[in-house]
Simulated assay, not measured.
Amino acid sequence: FYQRTWMFLLTLSLIFAEGGKILVIPQDGSHWLSMRPVVEQLQQNGHEVVVVVPSTSLYMKPTETQNYTVKVYPIPYAEEHLAVALKSFVDAHFIEQSVLNIIITMYQSMLEISKFFFTNCKSLLDNEDMMRYLRESKFDVVFTDPILMCGPIITEYLSVPSVYFLRGFPCGMDSEATQCPNPPSYVPRLFLNNSDSMTFAQRVKNMLVHMLEFVYCKPIFARFEELAYEIFQKKVTATDLLSRGAVWLMRYDFVFEFPRPVMPNMVFIGGINCDQKKKLSQ
């Protein structure tokens, strides 16, 4: 496994060194604000970058000045509807309430926002002209934020390597997809604010939340699994699709995270979005 991984990384580096064709499948919201500087830098470094975006989005504006190519596909809802859903999703993260209510509130808002992004993905896959363009373009790699699965589905459809750019994944699916150990006795779960040094009671609560994750995430990704079945005519889970990721660029710093196992193809790039300040004058 390790030999294959490093061979792929070497091949990928050669592609990037020569200037490759990169397909970018981004995710709207703050995810795109984090990814955009990297996309711009890839184009400046001599790569041919194509970004595929929906006609309606909050931050991925095709009319903005950019140095990369943007391909737009139509979707059947207005920007106002997306803005309301996204605001509700963001607000759910800042309401002070019990752990159980936080889980329920975020779960409901996640289901609602995922409906919009599922519509985006299905609209893209149903767009014959766009999909024909993607097939005929012969991209070398897909650069994507995989949080809501459209990037991994497109990657599987095109049969090309993928590089993931993300902050993390709900329900520990990133660990499951990479077969990385993620023991609930030592690795704190989302929502609980535990450290890696947990008391017995905290470990019990951590285990209960871990068990809840199996129920929590299934409905969120069920539609995408059904969509993948329509495309590939075989049953495929969200974890199966995620497992195709060759490199996982994780947008956090190991220094600021609790100790936990990671896999060789997980690369920590925390701070990549920080502004580069000028040196202080004498």
Rank of each mutant, 00 (worst) to 15 (best):
Y2M: 12
R4W: 10
W6H: 11
M7Y: 15
F8T: 05
L10P: 07
L10D: 12
T11W: 13
T11K: 13
S13Q: 08
L14F: 11
L14H: 12
I15D: 13
F16D: 04
F16H: 04
F16V: 05
A17M: 11
A17W: 10
G19T: 06
G20R: 06
G20Y: 07
K21F: 04
K21E: 08
K21L: 08
K21M: 06
I22R: 02
L23G: 04
L23F: 12
V24L: 11
I25E: 00
Q27K: 06
Q27H: 05
D28M: 02
G29A: 09
G29Y: 03
S30N: 13
S34R: 01
R36M: 07
P37N: 09
V39I: 14
E40Q: 11
Q44M: 11
Q44T: 14
Q44C: 13
N45M: 15
N45T: 14
G46E: 09
G46N: 08
E48Q: 14
V51R: 02
V52N: 00
T56N: 05
T56I: 05
L58E: 04
M60T: 04
K61C: 15
P62Y: 05
E64S: 13
E64H: 13
T65G: 15
Y68S: 02
Y68K: 03
V70I: 09
V70P: 01
K71R: 11
V72Q: 03
Y73A: 01
P74A: 08
I75K: 00
Y77F: 15
Y77S: 04
Y77H: 12
A78P: 08
E79C: 11
H81D: 15
L82C: 03
L82G: 01
L82R: 01
L82H: 01
A83I: 09
A83G: 12
V84C: 11
L86G: 09
L86E: 13
L86H: 13
D91S: 13
H93Q: 09
F94E: 09
F94Q: 08
F94C: 10
I95K: 13
E96R: 07
E96Y: 05
Q97L: 10
Q97T: 14
S98F: 03
N101W: 04
I102P: 10
I102H: 15
I102Y: 15
I103T: 02
I104Q: 11
M106T: 10
Y107P: 05
Q108P: 07
Q108N: 14
S109T: 11
M110L: 15
S114C: 07
F116A: 00
F117M: 03
F117S: 00
F118R: 01
F118H: 01
N120T: 00
S123A: 03
L124Q: 01
L124M: 08
L124F: 03
L125T: 00
D126L: 00
D126E: 05
N127G: 05
D129H: 11
M130E: 03
